[in-house]
């Protein structure tokens, strides 16, 4: 009984190792195709559209609402200490260091990551990838690499849009509705938020998240079992693994950057 249990754990560990190995080899193949993709910007632009532009709406909406809620909650807490002039600092630092990168990555994996997985998985299920191989076209370079690059470029851009819109929405709620002094909102923010430290580190977070979320999405799609059930499971996995990876990495990055 005990032995059986150990065997189980052993097999599970080897499964994880094999999967990590396969995903890394896959990543290497994808990266080797980057040079080719850069020579064909048309492919990249098309993917930037479906990955980035189509995610813009949900990012804009979420940013505005998150910024407004942060401002409201922050005001309620700060006003007890007579420190409501620090509202700008609170809103901007939470958005730049934490909420901007993390929320954008989670929304992105739900909107664009899942779509990427489903699209690639379906292309595999309908033998489109195999037929490309037989037409002597490498499906990794032709299909995966442009999507991967587009994801890596889109998420950081979406994140800075999320951050600045969120801060602006927080400012509107704070100064127009709650009556925080406009001057102290901005000046306190500017003196406490450091570009080289806070903004750059938040941006680095978003680059890491973009890389990981897109990698998971395209890998899950490319490795999907070529049936309708397999594709739907791959899509779910893509979102779940992305969320777990983003949250775990966020903890590590925050510990390294801001402590």
């Amino acid at each position: 009984m005990m032995l059986n249990w150990f065997q189980h754990i052993g097999a599970f560990t080897f499964d994880i190792l094999a999967n990590t190995g396969r995903a890394s080899i896959f990543l290497l193949q994808v990266i080797l195709g980057i040079k080719e993709t850069l020579f064909r910007p048309q492919l990249l632009i098309r993917e930037l559209y479906s990955v980035g532009v189509l995610s813009l709406l949900i990012i804009i909406f979420s940013a505005i609402f998150v910024g407004m809620v942060l401002s409201l909650l922050g005001y309620v807490t700060l006003v007890d200490f007579g420190a409501e002039s620090s509202l700008g600092v609170l809103v901007s630092l939470s958005l730049i260091r934490e909420l901007g990168p993390v929320l954008t990555a989670l929304l992105f994996s739900g909107r664009a990551g899942s779509a990427l997985t489903a699209e690639i998985g379906l292309m595999k299920a309908t033998e489109q990838l195999a037929s490309m191989e037989m037409m002597a076209v490498d499906p990794i370079r032709r299909i995966i690499t442009p999507r991967f690059l587009a994801g890596c470029i889109s998420l950081p851009l979406l994140t800075v849009i999320f951050m600045s819109l969120g801060i602006y929405a927080g400012y509107l709620v704070g100064s127009i509705w709650l009556g925080v002094d406009e001057g102290s909102f901005w000046s306190q923010m500017q003196s406490k938020v450091e570009f080289g430290h806070d903004v750059i580190n938040g941006f680095i977070k978003s680059i890491v998240f973009g890389f990981v979320v897109t990698w998971i999405a395209v890998y899950q799609g490319y490795n999907a079992i070529p049936t309708s059930e397999g594709v739907s499971r791959a899509t779910t996995n893509s979102v779940v693994y992305s969320a777990l990876a983003v949250l775990a990495l966020d903890f590590i990055l925050t510990a390294v950057m801001f402590v």
């Binding site: 813009l56 901007s92 730049i96 950081p156 851009l157 979406l158 800075v160 849009i161 951050m163 600045s164 819109l165 801060i167 901005w186 923010m189 500017q190 003196s191 938020v193 450091e194 570009f195 806070d198 903004v199 941006f203």
Partner: peptide, 15 residues
């Protein structure tokens, strides 16, 4: 849009 947001972050929000 993304680049503008980045510039705003650099000039208006942070020092």
């Amino acid at each position: 849009l993304g680049l503008t947001a980045f510039i705003i972050m650099a000039l208006n929000i942070s020092n």
